[in-house]
Amino acid sequence: MSIKVVEITLISCEGLTTPDNHRPLKKHARGVIRTPQSASVVRSTSLDRHGGAYPRWDERFTVEMPAWARWLDVEVWSGMERLIGTARVPASDFSGGIVPDGYLNFLSYRLREGNGEFNGIVNVSVRVVGRKLESRNGAGFGCALGVPGRVVTGIPVSNTNSPSKTTFKNVV
């Protein structure tokens, strides 16, 4: 099974409103990444320093996505408790489409509230920085895909618990 190593930067939001009455947000917002393999895999930015409808974080995270994962979710919260909206980022927008791995994709999405209504826009950048290939046949087959601009070497790492299993780690 192949795992994509994905670097995501939560850049900023535009035009956030409160979900109740759609007034411009005044509180401090934070962004959250949720990958689909487990709802508990989350990464959160810090609270926006200045508060308001146009928060900016520029915070970068690295997450791993299995090949079958079709999307990741970006949520924007008001403070720590209140979810403003979610944007679903399809994997096809940054991988497996017409752009090569390693391309820095600048992507923007309209946030959707729990009831389906649109809220503000979230701006992110996404880059596939590597792929890990896991071989289960023990025959020593495997490779690592380099990302343009970086030298990536695939090194077979034997798994001591299960000698028939070989994983390949990217060393950047």
Partner: peptide
């Protein structure tokens, strides 16, 4: 677009 992605 129809899925909520906004032009960069």
């Amino acid at each position: 677009n129809s899925e909520g992605r906004v032009a960069t």
